[in-house]
Every structure is written in structure tokens, then in C-alpha cells.
Design a protein around this nucleic acid. Structure first.
Lengths: 331, 331
DNA sequence: TTGGTTTTTGCAACCGGTTGCAAAATGCTA
DNA sequence: TAGCATTTTGCAACCGGTTGCAAAAACCAA
């Protein structure tokens, strides 16, 4: 059905190579030839088959965009930024949903069958093994929102989650609370572990302050709400660091439900600074994660790796900062 | 770098055709041959190149997933359902972000270059021309969340937006309001136009009731909030039909801001029934749109079209229903 | 005009698979 | 075991492009 290079060649009365060359930039073609071919191509409505050419060039311009975060609204923004950023550079995102997929081998096989030029793993909850599996398969990989490390095994772009844990602890300490709590996401996510670690470390400097720790099943509204309702049965803490904004919002809902108010009775600080946190009826004090910068930097890194596949792995860490809003008392 | 069919053939001591056949189901291969080849393939870590084979079979199993809705949380669920549903059927979504792209030709060209087997347009705000452009290019297309029609030009799966407009009007009328309003999304979206049409039609049956109409710039929180703040300057209506849930939530925020409360002072009904609308601190009365059914049906239709490209276009319309929650007075 | 350089062009092989066809192998019946 | 039908296999051409190489064309200076 679609027009092929050969048909254009026949119509223009030239060789197939000539047609190929007019559509490959950097190839040697005279002006006369180029315009003759372009005319024929235009008349026939020809556009080259990217897949066929990938066979000889070894480049598909396909990038696997791998994630398991399809329930946190912040990832809609992440997908938006990734797809647009990749498109702008002539790359095409092949989306892979890893929800309830535990074996990296399947995804590796699948993406290799499609000869993707590279893979972006966009997730803070996917185990590092996934990124490693791609690397081991010889596919350039960037782990966005992955675990910060001083000796990264693959390229990582994200934030220092340990540090955000400390920041949250300091923000709560600044309010003079005597009993604070960590309410994290899923235990097995590296992001949860790191935020927890930083929080606990910082709190160790305040041995007089009581510290409670708990974990929600998922980074979701429902999980946060349920966990908080449970916590409110006993003596709740005065201030909470919730591992994620959507979790925080669930927590806020639980607090309100119990007839308590925020920040008067309980203070909350979240993490992410998603758009919704700015909404006037939510107005969540939170730690801003620079999504846009992380995504753009990931894309740049990926583009660089396409030219230099064996690039030495690096970690790109972006600073976060507390955004003061209405769920912690003013200082 | 990756292992090719030829290498497997050499190792197994058989012809290339034999290897090809063991990996093509339905091909004639003896058990003996198959196991010999599989052994060699396993030892070499071979998996066939899907793109190369697409060259002769004419099938890539690539499906273009085209959207411009990257700001409405409901679309995160839509993407989740689409990606998983497609994957489960061995298809791969190539994501295309059409935010600020007005020319269908570019996307058509791009997706043809990648020889996608079909295209799903998932958007209620993209003009119908996009779906038509794919059809005209000979690519099977399904427009999900597109305009319902009794004589569809392409396959459409979605809801009858005119009918939802009527439903909303009836829900408001049941409350005995004497002044109601339509607060739609962007004027140029067919979904806005249809919801508006149905609403106005139904209201024509109640000539004694005052009707106000206005439109937000986008289906977004911020746009809804801004428009409502403007409306609250003058005499506001008693009940509002907002063209979308996220818009409604912006409206709720504006109402609260002005010291008014819902549903006592003003009643609101939204559309979509996104997860967030169920949250206890939002508790929005809304019209449920059966997302899951729409997505699954779209995928089934797409799969059917892969075997029968010239299938006669059909419209699949799913019924909606009002979900009573806290933003309209109880009946 | 000639002869040497440089640019442009086409040939043919190749990328990694698939498939129609005929030959080879196997199975079955008598 | 011969003879025929059936299955399995390999050959070779093809899918839609790209590219190294050598021939042809264009250019340039003498």
C-alpha cells in the first residue's frame, strides 16, 4: 500500500541509491538530482520507512519509556514532559507499563525485539534490577527518579531522597514538635527507604523528641488515608512527614474525618509538590521535586548516550526545597 | 551486537528458513528440528528482530496511541488501561503527544514512517480531523472518547455527550433550582459542544428557569477556578453543570474561597467520576463515564480491525449515570 | 582541447528476517 | 519392500531500505 523507494526511483528515472541519498542527510547528491527526486516523491506521497532503514543503520530512534507509576498524578506530568521532549529530538517513545511485572527479562526481551536505541526507566518504586537488566543487555539506559548514589551502576537522574528525609525532619523540628512521625510509602521502594533513613538520621540529633514510623501500602490517596485512620486511633504525633503528596492528601482527608484540623492539631509535610498541592482547598506544605529538570536532564543524558553508548555512568542529583503552605504552622 | 537468525542457523547446523519457522507459529517444523533450533537459540540468547520480520509480514504490532490530554488526571488511568490492554494482546503502544500540534499531517507521516498497524486517538478535545487523516492514510483508526454519531466516519468509542448534558440538566431540575448554569470546557472541543447542546435542549423544557452559559479556557482546575471566581462577582446561579470533574474541583475551590458552601449555597454536578471525585474531602456529585469499558472496547475494536481493515465504521456508545455524592442536595 | 581532481551516480551486496516452491525425507498401505 | 501421499527441509527471491566501491560526469587549470 504505501509508496516505496523503488517506485520513486522509477518515476524519477534514477537509481534507488539516488532516492535513498536525497532522504539521508549528509549524503552526496547534486541539486539537480535532489529536486528531481523530491518532485517524484511529492507526487507519489512518499515518505521513507524508518523501520527498513533501521535495519542497515542500526538505529530506530525508538526509546523505551518504562514505568509502573500509573496511579500517581505526578506521572502524568512526567509522561507529558518525556513524550514532548523526546519528540522534539526526533525520538519516539515506546511506552511499557510494568505494573505487576516482576521479571525484568520479559521487558528486556520485548524491547530488544523492537531494537530500541535506549530505555528510560521512569519510576521511584521499580527495583534497580530493571535498569541493570537493560544495561546488561547492552541497551543504553537512564533511570529517572532512581536512587541517588555516589557510585551509580547506571545513569541515574533524580533527587537525594535521604536528604529530603532530613529536610522534612528539620522542617518539623523548626515547629518545636515533641512527637513526630514518618509515614512512608511501600517499604520495598528505594525512595521510601532513603527518605526514611534521612528522616531517622536527622531525628537522632533530637533524642528528646519522640519518633513514630509507619508505612502505607502504596503511594496512593486511599493507602494514606487508611494508614492515618489507623494511626489516629492511638495517640497521634504532632507532625508528620508523608512520603508523597498524594499520600499526604489521603492523610489530610483522614484528619478532617476525625474532626481534627491541620495545622492546628496536626502538621503535615509532603513530598513532590504536584500541581494539586497548590490547589487552594488542599494547600499542602511540601518538598518540591524539580520534575521538569529531572526529565529534561534525563533526555539530554539519553541523547548523549546514543552517540557514546559506553559513557561512564553518572548520577545527576537535583536539589529540592521546602514549599511553605498551609499544612504546617507558619514559622 | 544482538544475535541474528543466521548465527542460530549455523550453530544448529540447519537452514535459516528452519530457524525462522520455529519462531513463526503455524509454520511446518518437525519436533526434532524445533528442539534442535530452540537449543541453539537458547545457548546464544537469540530473540527474533520484530522490525526485520515486519518488513516481509507487513505487521509491526505497533499501535500509535495519540493524545493531547496530558493534564487531566483521568487520562493517567486511560493510559494505564490502554498500555496494559495492548500489551496483553502482544501489541506495543507508540505514544504520541499532540499538545500544541494542530496539523494532522505531521503525525500521520510520522506514524506511517514507523508502519504502525493502527492508531488509537484517545481524546475528547482533539478535532475529528485527526482521526480522519489517519483513516485517509489507510491506517486503521479508533477514536476513543470521540464524538458520538449515528453515522460515524471512523470507529468511535465513547459516550453520548448530548445525553450527558440532558442528564445533568435533569439532575439540577430535580432540585427545583430556578437558575442554573452550564460551565463548559474549551468551546472548540466537540465534547463541550455536545454537552452544551444537550443541556440547553433539556432546559428548553423549563422556560421558567433561568439559564446561564459560560466556558472555561481548558479542562483544568485553574481554568475552572478562574471562571467561577469571575461568575461569583455577579449573581451566581443556584446549580452548575461543569463539563468535567477537574473543572468542578476548581469551581468548588472558588466557591469555598468566597465563603460560600456547597451544596447549601450552590450545587455542582461534574462529569467523569474520576478517582479523586470519590475522595472524602472532595465528594463530588458527578456523571460517571465508564472509562474502563471504553478503553477495553476500543482495544477490541482495534484488534478486530487488524484482521479486517475495511470494517464498516461503527460507533460504540456506553451509557453514563449520575453518581450522587455531596455537592448536590439529597433528593 | 587535454588531463587530472573532485563530485555525483549506479551497481550490487547487505541488514535480519519470511515464504513459495521443489526436492528430500518420512509415513503409510498393500 | 515397493509405491504413493504427506510432511519436512533448503534454496533463492524478496521485503524496503543503505552503503562501499568503482565508473561516469562535472569541474578546473593549463
Amino acid at each position: 500500500m504505501p509508496v516505496t523507494l523503488k517506485e520513486v526511483a522509477v518515476r524519477a528515472g534514477v537509481s534507488r541509491s539516488a532516492v535513498s541519498r536525497t532522504f539521508t542527510d549528509g549524503a552526496s547528491v547534486s541539486e539537480k538530482m535532489r529536486s528531481k527526486v523530491e518532485k517524484a516523491a511529492r507526487e507519489l506521497g512518499y515518505s521513507p520507512n524508518a523501520l527498513a532503514s533501521s535495519l542497515t543503520t542500526g538505529r530506530t530512534k525508538l526509546i523505551g519509556l518504562v514505568s509502573n507509576n500509573f496511579h500517581n498524578p505526578i506521572f502524568l506530568e512526567v509522561f507529558d514532559l518525556f513524550t514532548r521532549g523526546l519528540q522534539d529530538r526526533g525520538l519516539r517513545p515506546l511506552l511499557v507499563n510494568l505494573t505487576d511485572e516482576q521479571d525484568p527479562e520479559n521487558s528486556v526481551r520485548m524491547l530488544r525485539q523492537y531494537s530500541v536505541d535506549g530505555v528510560v526507566v521512569a519510576s521511584s518504586t521499580l527495583p534497580p534490577e530493571f535498569a541493570l537488566a537493560f544495561r546488561d543487555a547492552g541497551v543504553p539506559v537512564v533511570h529517572s527518579f532512581g536512587r541517588a548514589s555516589s557510585s551509580p551502576k547506571v545513569h541515574v537522574v533524580g533527587i537525594d531522597n535521604v536528604e529530603t528525609g532530613r529536610m522534612a525532619a528539620r522542617a518539623l523540628m523548626a515547629r518545636g514538635y515533641k512527637h513526630v512521625a514518618f509515614l512512608g510509602g511501600p517499604r520495598d521502594a528505594t525512595s521510601t527507604q532513603d527518605r526514611h533513613k534521612g528522616f531517622v538520621e536527622e531525628m537522632a540529633l533530637h533524642p528528646d523528641v519522640r519518633l513514630t514510623e509507619s508505612f502505607a501500602q502504596a503511594y496512593s490517596h486511599e493507602a494514606g488515608r487508611r494508614e492515618m485512620l489507623r494511626l489516629l486511633e492511638d495517640a497521634p504525633a504532632e507532625g508528620y512527614f508523608c512520603g508523597d503528596d498524594v499520600l499526604s492528601i489521603g492523610v489530610l482527608s483522614a484528619i478532617k474525618d476525625k474532626g481534627l484540623s491541620c495545622p492546628e492539631d496536626i502538621g503535615i509535610i509532603g513530598l513532590n509538590d504536584m500541581e494539586m498541592s497548590r490547589w487552594e482547598n488542599i494547600d499542602l506544605t511540601t518538598i518540591h521535586q524539580p520534575i521538569r529538570q529531572i526529565v529534561n536532564s534525563s533526555i539530554e543524558l539519553m541523547v548523549a548516550m546514543l552517540d557514546e553508548p559506553d559513557r561512564y555512568p553518572e548520577a545527576r542529583i537535583f536539589p529540592c526545597s521546602v514549599v511553605e503552605r498551609g499544612t504546617l504552622p507558619a514559622l
